[in-house]
């Protein structure tokens, strides 16, 4: 069992755990956390792959890929959390808002859905 195999196994288990959390957890915040755990697993796989190179230094290409991935993950997470906040705000106001505020929007969505 080499270090590479140890960590890549852990990476795969993390990813599987994240997928399980994403499917079974209902709270949105937890879904976002589950996605971040999957991302952690994917990153760990890449970094352990880079570590395999027993030469002078680890392979820098996966490192660069993971850095890019981290930026993408924080962007998407921030966006998702902002959306959750906004949804919460509008659901919280729902009883009042449905009568008045949403009328101008009817061009996009009709409220008389199926």
């Amino acid at each position: 069992m080499t270090t590479f195999h140890l960590y890549s196994f852990a990476a795969m288990l993390l990813a599987a755990l994240g997928v399980y959390g994403l499917i079974t957890r209902r709270h949105l915040l937890r879904k976002v956390m589950a996605l971040n755990i999957i991302a952690g697993g994917a990153f760990l796989l890449l970094i352990s792959t880079a570590y395999r190179n027993q030469g002078a230094f680890p392979d820098p290409v996966p490192h660069a890929m993971v850095l890019t991935g981290i930026v993408v993950a924080i962007s998407a997470t921030g966006f998702a959390l902002a959306l959750i906040q906004r949804i919460q705000k509008q659901l919280g106001q729902r009883p009042d808002q449905e009568a008045g505020d949403e009328n101008p929007d009817q061009t996009e969505t009709s409220r008389s859905g199926p």
Partner: peptide, 14 residues
């Protein structure tokens, strides 16, 4: 920014 579109957008994002 309608609630329906926000919920749909979040689902799409996830």
């Amino acid at each position: 920014k309608t609630t329906a579109s926000l919920v749909a957008g979040l689902r799409y994002l996830l």
